[in-house]
Amino acid sequence: MNDHTVKAFDDELHLLVAKISEMGGIAESMVARSVTALISADKGIGQAVVAEDKMLDALQMEVDDQVVLLIAKRQPMAQDLREAIAALRMATDIERIGDLGKNIARRSFQIEDNLPPKKLLRGLQHLTDVSLEQLKDALDAYAGKDLVKANAVWERDDEIDSLYTSLFRELLTYMMEDPRTITYCTHLLFCAKNLERIGDHITNLCESINYMITGDYQMTAEAAE
């Protein structure tokens, strides 16, 4: 697409994309480190993640302000308007992803001396890896305005859901076998639930990207073609 006649308009839109990407990067790292904090019962990492959430909140407000100002100043139309609205929505979803990361990090404070056996953590780590990969792909799709990629991520959300379901069953089995594991298994279960919620926010991100590119709310397999 051509540049705007008013160069500052382009700059403002680019800045918005940069802000969203920055937020995405922070959320990604928060989620990754929150699970590390939980798995290794590392309070230090956990506290760092909790502190980082404030930064994400501040960035979300900045995006809000920028979009409001952009609408007031430039009265964006068509693609530009959709970019502004998509940024607004995505900032909200990314901020929620950060919140969920913070929740996971907080659990690391509670299970410090109560480390679960390694084999219990493998499933959780896998769910984390898949979620983070999805998040990264969604952010790449946004930066590259890649509809095909956004659609692919959106369709892969089922994977996160089924991983969560199987992890839930696994943890339930452990708890029934050995009631002493109930405390930390419950923590892990909440953590898994948070990751599943993160997956839902990632699908929202994809829907916003789809709206930004096509103007449609409905995500369909055909849209990717």
């Binding site: 006649t5 008013v6 139309m77 068509a78």
Partner: peptide, 11 residues
């Protein structure tokens, strides 16, 4: 052309 015009990218 409509896209370019209404978004201020024309000319």
């Amino acid at each position: 052309k409509t896209k370019d015009y209404i978004t201020g990218r024309y000319g």
